[in-house]
Computed example of a mutant assay.
Amino acid sequence: MGGDWSELNSDLLHLISKKLEKFSNLIRFRSVCKQWRLAVDSTDLPPQLPCLLQPDPTLFSTSYSAFSVSSNTTSQVKLPIGHREFKHTFHRAPSIGYLLVNSFTPVKLQFLLNPVTENKLHLPFPKGTLFHRMIYMGPNPNSNSRTAKEGVHSVVLVLDRFEKTPIKSIMFWQSNINKITTFRIPSISGPALPGYYKGKLFVTRWDRGETNVFDMETGAEMNVVIPNPNEHSMFFFLVEAMGDLLGVVHHYNYDGGIREFKFKVYRLEHTDEFDECRWIELQGIGDRVLFLTRNQGFCLSTSDFKGFRGNCIYYLELVEDRNKDGQRSYNRRLLRYNMEDGTKDELLNNVDFYATWFVPSLS
């Protein structure tokens, strides 16, 4: 075929774009030229499946690998963000297609980046803010909007490096009014993280064996104390899952001297005002799929995202290896855990420490 590819008929380009289901193909198509980019209509695309993004090990490279758990394939893509910035990127789905980025070049900035559209939303966090972890980034539960400029909450746990008191700061950004609210919570010992659910912040306290609740609008601690399950003093993950708050525990059973890894999932049963709450253990999670990494997680439904097996948990596990000389090395791998029978499958080996889940969006 001769001629200029950028002059292809816009209707034909639109038909081709409707066949694109992979994140990597979507980026390549839109990168050809402006006409090809405009031919992609977000309303025609099927829901974009989450992928595991990993940076190229080269320091200033913008190449990434995108692993699709639905097709078990890896594609190479170019993103408008370098490895150095990606190392300071935190992501928590549902994110409507954005990554939270700490940029250290040339000055330290924080912004939301949509790597598909290259749209940036700069955040009004104070200079020198050191993000510890992202707790939640997604639609405001009290808003009908699903666009980042109009109805998104971004909740960030800030590490107080120079504080001597056992507290941590929470920064709460509301996109519709571009406002930052800051309040403080007791420092959490152990690997548990706060969880965001229905406009409230749930904090698991390992030292007390309970979960406390904070009102996100005022930052005040509510008069709510939820005893954690007796067999587990704390949760490793608190995940909002299709209208429920799930507490996830992973532990090892020792059967006949063999160490066996297991997950347990609990659902928070509560009244509308949270004046009565308790954790109920679930035998399965139905058609839901959990994605966990670095003490963070999110949930999707197989009814909305085809290509996944329901009642499963995708997670990253750190594995210790020893060579013949006894020297230790560590490797992370991506696994899928079946809640029905407790079996697990390895999907990907040698996963980069900075790998993160990402759900693409054209919004």
Rank of each mutant, 00 (worst) to 15 (best):
E7P: 00
E7W: 07
L13H: 00
I16K: 05
K18V: 04
K19P: 03
K22P: 00
F23A: 03
V32P: 10
P46A: 08
P46Y: 01
Q48K: 11
Q48V: 07
P55V: 09
L59W: 14
L59V: 15
Y64N: 02
S70E: 04
P80C: 01
F90T: 05
R92H: 09
I96G: 07
L100M: 13
P106Q: 15
Q110I: 07
L112E: 03
T117S: 10
K120N: 11
F125R: 00
P126I: 03
P126N: 05
K127W: 12
L130Y: 09
F131G: 00
R146I: 13
R146A: 05
H153A: 04
L157S: 06
D160E: 14
R161T: 06
K168Y: 08
S169V: 03
S169E: 13
Q174H: 14
I177D: 13
N178L: 07
K179Y: 10
T181Y: 09
F183G: 01
A192H: 02
A192M: 05
Y196H: 06
K198F: 03
L201Q: 00
F202H: 04
V203K: 00
W206K: 14
N212C: 11
F214K: 04
D215I: 01
T218M: 11
M222L: 15
V224Y: 06
V225M: 04
P229N: 03
N230S: 14
N230T: 15
H232Y: 15
H232R: 08
V239N: 01
G257R: 07
R259Y: 05
R267P: 09
R267K: 13
T271V: 07
R278W: 12
W279I: 02
E281N: 11
E281G: 05
L282R: 04
Q283S: 15
I285R: 08
G286H: 13
G286T: 09
R288I: 06
L292M: 09
L292F: 07
T293H: 10
T293N: 14
S301T: 14
S301A: 08
D304I: 06
K306P: 02
K306I: 10
K306W: 12
F308Q: 00
R309V: 10
G310Q: 03
N311L: 08
N311T: 09
Y314F: 15
Y315A: 06
L316H: 06
D321S: 14
Q327W: 10
Y330R: 13
L334A: 12
T343R: 10
T356L: 15
W357N: 00
S361T: 05
